[in-house]
């Protein structure tokens, strides 16, 4: 199995009203080598509520859940382009295949189910490899960080580095994700401890 698959934790949401099915799937996933955390929703509305605060990597859903709600699903797809959707088929539903990135049947073996999901993860980790593997900041990010701790606005940072404000915002997001720190004062302590700036520059 792909190494990144075990190292980086994947976030899976199971959308399934049947307790027997969702708990069965839960156990299969936890027994497998996939390093994941799992949330569970009974209904599509519960899922939408969850998506307001979280962005899972994969959604595994009973295909019946999408019945007559294709519009909402397509909209969610647009607002959350990074979620991969796996359909669980309880019966044949050819019409909805376009909504899923992959699917398996309730009667597939444990290995088949894990394989289906692993394949998606490999695709995912390939796309995000540079992000998930390394927590050290790039040179550009260090330049942006220096601007932040010196109290410069996004616009000022953008001008001094000759990049767009949008790019600065993206760098800021990546800095927060890598360091686990969001506040300016927290980032200042980070920058000093990594000797990116010296305390004399700062005061």
């Amino acid at each position: 199995m792909n190494k990144t698959l075990q190292r980086t934790q994947q976030h899976i949401v199971i959308l399934e009203a049947s307790k027997i099915i969702s708990e069965g799937l839960y156990d299969i996933l936890y027994r497998s080598e996939i390093n994941c955390k799992i949330d569970h929703c009974d209904t599509l509305d519960e899922l939408f509520e969850l998506l307001e605060t979280k962005t899972p990597h994969i959604l595994i859903t009973n295909s019946m859940q999408f019945l007559n709600r294709e519009k909402e699903i397509k909209k969610t797809r647009k607002t959350h382009p990074n979620i991969h959707i796996v359909g669980m088929d309880c019966m044949h539903m050819p019409k909805m295949n376009s909504l899923f990135d992959a699917s398996f049947s309730l009667y597939d073996s444990e290995e088949q189910i894990i394989q289906t999901i692993s394949k998606l993860f490999e695709k995912l980790s390939f796309a995000h490899q540079t992000k998930t593997d390394d927590d050290s900041l790039s040179d550009r990010e260090i330049e942006v960080l220096t601007g932040i701790v010196n109290g410069h606005s996004n616009k000022e940072i953008a001008e001094s580095l000759n990049i767009s404000v949008h790019t600065v915002v993206t760098h800021r997001k990546n800095i927060a994700a890598k360091t686990g720190i969001r506040s300016q004062s927290g980032l200042t302590i980070y920058a000093i401890s990594k000797e990116i700036i010296s305390i004399d520059d700062f005061s």
Binding site: G180, I181, R182, G186, Y190, K194
Partner: peptide, 13 residues
């Protein structure tokens, strides 16, 4: 949020 910052500083940096 800042509580998380504190934890990150102690656990990571």
């Amino acid at each position: 949020l800042k509580l998380k910052d504190l934890k990150s500083l102690l656990l990571k940096h």
